[in-house]
Every structure is written in C-alpha cells, then in structure tokens.
Amino acid sequence: MLKFVKNHMESITGIEIYPIISLLIFFTFFVVLFWWVFTAKKEYINKVSNIPLDNQQNDTIL
C-alpha cells in the first residue's frame, strides 16, 4: 500500500510545493500570534482573562 502511494505521489507534477506552502502558513501563523501576544495591551489581557470569572459570579447570583 505504501509503495502504491509513494509511486502515485511521484507521478504528480508540482506536488513538492505543497509541503513548502504548508510550512510557510504554519510559520506565518505563529509569528503573527507571537507578535500579537507581545504587543497586546496589558489592560486588554487582564480584561479578557477575567471574563470566565465574571460569568461564574453572574451565574451564581441568578
């Protein structure tokens, strides 16, 4: 089965670009994510991190 897949993949022209594109998308996503984390305002981070706690307090009151 593996031999069939390997032979079939080798017969497709231009297939070598897909792993490169996947790696670039993966790398770009995480670079943007790290950039956002390091440039995010601390007030926003604190506000968003307290959302689950605020919802629990409101649920117990209701």
Rank of each mutant, 00 (worst) to 15 (best):
M1N: 10
L2R: 13
L2H: 14
L2P: 05
K3V: 13
K3Q: 13
K3S: 04
V5I: 15
V5A: 14
V5T: 11
V5R: 11
K6H: 15
K6P: 14
N7A: 08
H8I: 06
H8R: 14
M9D: 03
M9Q: 12
E10V: 05
E10D: 10
E10F: 10
E10Q: 15
E10G: 13
S11V: 11
S11R: 13
T13W: 05
G14A: 06
G14T: 02
G14I: 02
E16T: 07
E16R: 08
I17G: 07
Y18G: 11
P19R: 03
I21A: 07
I21L: 00
L24T: 08
I25R: 03
I25T: 05
I25N: 01
I25P: 00
F26L: 08
F26Q: 07
F26D: 03
F27Q: 08
T28Y: 04
T28R: 05
T28C: 04
F29W: 04
F30W: 01
F30V: 01
V31S: 00
F34M: 12
F34T: 09
F34C: 03
V37K: 09
F38N: 02
F38L: 09
T39H: 06
A40S: 13
A40T: 15
K42F: 11
K42I: 06
E43N: 01
E43V: 02
Y44S: 05
Y44C: 01
Y44I: 07
I45D: 07
I45G: 03
I45A: 02
N46P: 15
N46C: 09
S49R: 04
S49W: 10
S49C: 13
N50T: 10
N50L: 08
I51W: 14
I51G: 00
L53Q: 06
L53T: 01
N55A: 12
N55H: 15
Q57W: 07
Q57N: 06
Q57I: 12
D59G: 07
T60C: 10
T60R: 09
I61E: 08
I61H: 00
